[in-house]
Design a protein around this nucleic acid. Structure first.
Length: 368
DNA sequence: TAGTCGTGGCA
DNA sequence: TTGCCAAGACT
């Protein structure tokens, strides 16, 4: 087959060329992107903005990221500014975006870059990947986009494009090494940053998970899955385990001035470092009020009463249902160890994850 | 290696 | 309603 390039077969160079032409013509405008035109005119991408966007975009949609990216870059325009910020401010600004280890690592990474690298990001894959929160994908993405390193970052988009282009039937994640080898064919040319972004754009807008728009695809000629009519069926994936359900009771304790009792979660694990309303442990069934009382943050002399309604929230690997209890009468104002008071008007500046904002909404709606 | 770790949108 | 999905990293 060597040297052949007939109908339905494209050389690697032809594919790169077709992909770049498509990318430069479609001009997708994103806040962290330097347009191909500006790039050709010599404008360089800011490694800080590229890095920040790539961290935010991990497992997260462009639409969800845009507002957060604007907020972060307006508030902390440089990696040095971000490093100098209190970590709680960064966590609070990240609240609602999810995967909070990213926010902790983001701040840790900024500190390392500011302190150990003079405020400049390393310009190699190896140097980048040594930083907190930067793995194989992000290291290659930043290296290609910000530093013109000839590498292809392997993300879900690129894996999907490769699986279809070559009709790889092996299910993920077992197919990952093979897909990475196939992507190597897109390395080596000029403009590795544009190639990287073009492959991801293609996956995001044309070679989509459902109902791919093959008729619009610059790589259609030579796509094995399209030729066989199975593009929408690839990549195949190993079946996932069912999500267990968990239940708990959150305690809504208010002070005379309306402030609510909150506490900070441990740094490790689920919602690490974020703020929550005290609750029972989250178990296999909804506890009764009597059993829940042992976990209450304060002693309610008049007992506890349930707020009407429930909070439902789905995490990555389990679904949670929370009831909310409040003291029947005014509770003792003694502050439990590790807890503090926060007024609802200040919740916006607090690192409250979405599930806890739902709890607040339920409790505040009842209060009127 | 296989779990853990959020959230919102969509069919 | 339910499950699936999105520019992964870490342990």
């Amino acid at each position: 087959m060597a040297g052949r390039s007939g109908r339905g077969e494209n050389t690697a160079a032809q594919r790169r060329s077709a992909l770049l032409a498509w990318y430069r013509a479609q001009a997708r405008d994103l806040p962290w992107r330097v347009s191909p035109g500006a790039r050709a005119a010599g404008v360089r991408a800011d490694p800080y903005r590229v890095w920040l966007s790539e961290i935010m975009l991990q497992q997260t949609t462009v639409q969800a990221v845009k507002g957060y990216f604007d907020t972060f870059t307006a508030r902390w325009p440089t990696v040095g500014a971000l490093a100098a910020a209190p970590r709680d401010d960064v966590l609070a600004a990240w609240a609602g975006l999810g995967y909070y280890a990213r926010a902790r690592n983001l701040h840790a990474c900024a500190e390392v870059v500011a302190r150990d690298h003079g405020g400049r990001f390393p310009d190699t894959v190896e140097g980048l990947q040594a930083l907190p929160g930067i793995g194989p994908y992000t290291a290659r993405a930043v290296a290609a986009i910000a530093f013109d390193r000839p590498v292809v970052p392997m993300d879900g988009n690129v894996e999907r494009v490769m699986a279809r282009l070559h009709a790889v039937e092996t299910p993920l994640p077992a197919a990952k090494p093979e897909l990475a080898r196939l992507a190597d064919a897109f390395e080596g040319g000029e403009d590795p940053g544009d190639i990287a972004q073009a492959l991801m754009d293609l996956g995001a807008t044309v070679c989509t998970p459902r109902a791919p728009a093959c008729v619009l695809c610059p790589l259609r000629e030579g796509c094995a899955a399209a030729a066989r009519g199975i593009a929408a069926d690839l990549p195949r994936k190993a079946p996932k385990a069912a999500k267990p359900r968990r239940f708990g009771i959150a305690f809504w304790v208010t002070r005379a001035d309306g402030a609510v009792l909150v506490r900070r979660r441990p740094d490790e694990g689920l919602l690490g470092g974020m703020v929550e309303f005290p609750s029972t442990p989250w178990g296999d069934e909804m506890p009764g009020l009597q059993a829940a009382r042992a976990h209450a943050p304060v002693d309610a002399a008049g007992g506890w009463v349930l707020v009407p309604g429930r909070v439902a929230h789905v995490f990555t690997h389990f679904a949670l249902e929370l009831a909310v209890a409040r003291p029947r009468c005014a509770a003792g104002a003694r502050l439990p160890e590790g807890a503090f008071w926060a007024h609802p008007r200040d919740f916006g500046a607090l690192a409250l994850p979405t599930v806890m904002r739902k709890v607040a909404r339920l409790a505040l709606d009842e209060a009127g």
